[in-house]
Nucleic acid binder design. Sequence first.
DNA 1: TACTGATAGTCAGCATACTGAGCAATATCG
DNA 2: CGATATTGCTCAGTATGCTGACTATCAGTA
Lengths: 154, 154
Amino acid sequence: MKDNNDMPGHLARRFQQIAVAVFLAEVGDAGFDLTPVQYAALATIKANPGLDQVTLAGLIAYDRTTITGVIDRLVQKGLAERRASSRDRRARELEITDEGRRTLRKITPVVESAQRIMLRGLNAREGEELMRLLRKAIAAGNELSRAPLRDVQA
Amino acid sequence: MKDNNDMPGHLARRFQQIAVAVFLAEVGDAGFDLTPVQYAALATIKANPGLDQVTLAGLIAYDRTTITGVIDRLVQKGLAERRASSRDRRARELEITDEGRRTLRKITPVVESAQRIMLRGLNAREGEELMRLLRKAIAAGNELSRAPLRDVQA
DNA sequence: TACTGATAGTCAGCATACTGAGCAATATCG
DNA sequence: CGATATTGCTCAGTATGCTGACTATCAGTA
């Protein structure tokens, strides 16, 4: 009988579970109410002003049906805006607000600190190696999930 | 601006996303309707007949509030039974059914095959190293999530 | 231009996961 | 023994994530 600790699937879930808990604890302690998904979306909107929801989803590998709710909550918190696109009436253009910019600026060092805490059991070399192997495994499996990572095309 | 690919948290989410998708695809193709959580719970019940829900949760690092619903669905599918404990009237004793045993027997090779697919971008040595590093990071962060792994005490 | 297919977004439904609260039962200790 | 704390489980509420379906719009083409 194979042990859970020999199952990459189990280890993946467990590591992610800890990563989310660390993120929420650090961000919450700093006085913010933002989930990992919301942070990733907000940072990506800031880096790509005016992008539409499908492009955003592709850049951070979320399902487009999940993005709808995430944007709803960012808008409701006053951190982002969703407006109709002039070029394509189906699409929504996303913008970060000043409040969103302020939040992002204050929260980014906290998020980076959280990343270090997730790896606190590993030394620097091991942390790098873990990320390298994860990147490699993810690249090979990218198309296997419904929400693969998509580059922006020029 | 730190790239997503330098964030262990992002990589963790992405790898887990792929792992779940692979699991569901393989299990579904084999004709079964069982989620990763349900599989882990069922296998653990079989290995520890009569255990209660809190012990089960600790063995596979789930929150006890999540386990309630998971067991509901296993019972509803006829794969497990939940009965009142005689020793402690608060607790429920969990048992696998014959149907659950049959399902588990047929599904286990499929699950193991899914584990290999998740790592298909890595060679054997890299796969082992990834699992070693994940185990190490998880051990150091075990207490940081609300649902830490708990060994059974004698 | 009319038809066909693809695309952007939303929605309903289901299954994790979590927080926090509550109830019932058990354990502990003065 | 009785008050208190703890434990096992459930529930309400919220937020991912997914499948599948639907509407509106756009793009390509006969």
